[in-house]
């Protein structure tokens, strides 16, 4: 009897514990779910707005699905919308951004890789100081260099041009890429370089045959980070380019800030989506590496 009773209370305990667990889970999943909806809402609004005809938008549909789906706004944003006086759509600016981002990413990653290699495997007196100098460059408020950079680009004959913008992005990108590669190479054992030296390999041979093949993950991190940063940049674009040489972010801002006539919100949203898609794609495909880039400078391994 006593035995059965205790068994019963045990079952009761287990049940209530299970319920408590469920309640606890509710407190975990509830807020997480609400937050997820809040985070996805702007993207949702952008997408559905870009697919609606303008009349439907002015008719009061904001968050709901479009009654008639149309790609007109996307077409307009891509090839017809007016940026300043030119009504070419975002297409040429999208191309500008591509022309800028690809060389800038490749160059800054390559330079960062070799810098990181030197700062970890070929340490020379003052190497730490050099690293400190580069590191502060990551946290530079770019307003502090806008005026001299504008003057310098003018003197070099690069003012307002895409090569000029590439130069700017590489110069300040080196700071980040060097940080990435240095922190990665620090964890590779020094004995690896020593073994290669005893095997007869020199400075470049060790880099090329031994170090670089091991650094695919960090190369991906660096490329993604640089791609996102440079594609999304606005300050350098708006300060150092004008007219037809602008990157896409500048063009997008121009489209959106046009104040004449009936505001075409659906075109605005389509344009924003077009500007966002490359980095979103990269994020979806390689988000893991993107997060590593984000946290690289922040949390000690």
């Amino acid at each position: 009897m006593a035995n059965a009773l205790s068994q019963q209370t045990q079952i009761g305990d287990a049940l209530s514990q299970k319920n408590r667990m469920r309640l606890g889970r509710l407190f975990i999943y509830g807020p997480l779910g609400v937050m997820a909806i809040l985070y996805l809402m702007p993207l949702w609004v952008m997408v559905v707005t870009s697919l609606k005809p303008l009349d439907e938008i002015y008719g009061g549909s904001f968050i709901g699905l479009p009654q008639t789906v149309t790609l007109d706004a996307w077409r307009a944003a891509w090839s017809q919308a007016c940026i300043g006086t030119e009504c070419t759509g975002l297409k040429p600016y999208f191309v500008n951004s591509l022309l800028m981002v690809i060389p800038a990413v490749v160059l800054s990653t390559a330079i960062g890789a070799i810098n990181g290699y030197i700062l970890t495997k070929w340490r020379f007196p003052g190497a730490n100081f050099v690293f400190g100098l580069l590191l502060f460059g990551c946290f530079l408020p770019y307003q502090a260099i806008l005026i001299p950079m504008a003057r310098t680009l003018g003197l070099l004959g690069l003012a307002g041009s895409i090569p000029g913008l590439i130069f700017v992005h590489v110069a300040y990108g080196i700071c980040f890429t060097t940080l990435f590669f240095r922190n990665y190479f620090v964890s590779l054992p020094d004995e690896l370089t020593k073994a290669a030296m005893v095997d007869g390999a020199g400075f470049f041979r060790i880099f090329w045959s031994v170090i670089l093949p091991t650094s695919i993950p960090i190369i991906v991190v660096s490329c993604i980070w640089q791609f996102t940063q440079i594609w999304n940049d606005f300050l350098f674009g708006v300060s150092f380019t004008s007219g037809g040489n602008s990157p896409i972010t500048v063009a997008l801002n121009n489209i959106v800030n046009v104040t004449t006539g009936r505001k075409q919100y659906n075109v605005d949203m389509a344009a924003a989506m077009i500007a966002a898609i490359p980095t979103l794609l990269v994020y979806i495909v390689a988000g893991r590496y993107f997060v590593r880039g984000l946290t690289a400078g922040a949390v000690k391994g």
Binding site: L40, P42, V45, W231, N232, D268, M269, G287, F290
Partner: peptide, 22 residues
Amino acid sequence: RAVYLYPMALSFIVTGTAWKWI
């Protein structure tokens, strides 16, 4: 995690445009 972090992949210009509308 991916949902909470995707805004970091967007340009502030895109974010600004979207929120301006919202």
